[in-house]
């Protein structure tokens, strides 16, 4: 089942990417006083990265 394998590979890659994105040192990039849309950069980063991650998982799994 190559389709199934491909799904597994993509999800695993996504997991690794997620771990990297949400840990040191990438996280440290957003430790700044800047405001994005009036909200602190780090907080906004978490909200967007988190939402994006969930969306990608959904896309990979639900696309037949």
């Amino acid at each position: 089942m190559p389709e199934f394998r491909k799904k597994i590979e993509r999800l695993t890659a996504l997991l690794i990417g997620g771990i990297l994105l949400l840990n040191f040192p990438l996280l440290a990039i957003f430790h700044r006083d800047a405001l994005w849309f009036g909200l602190p950069a780090l907080y906004m980063y978490f909200v967007t990265a988190w939402a994006l991650f969930i969306a990608l998982v959904a896309v990979i799994l639900e696309r037949s």
Partner: peptide, 13 residues
């Protein structure tokens, strides 16, 4: 909450 989000990505297998 990030931990569960991450691991849920591989729940499928």
């Amino acid at each position: 909450y990030l931990g569960p989000t991450l691991i849920a990505a591989v729940w499928w297998f």
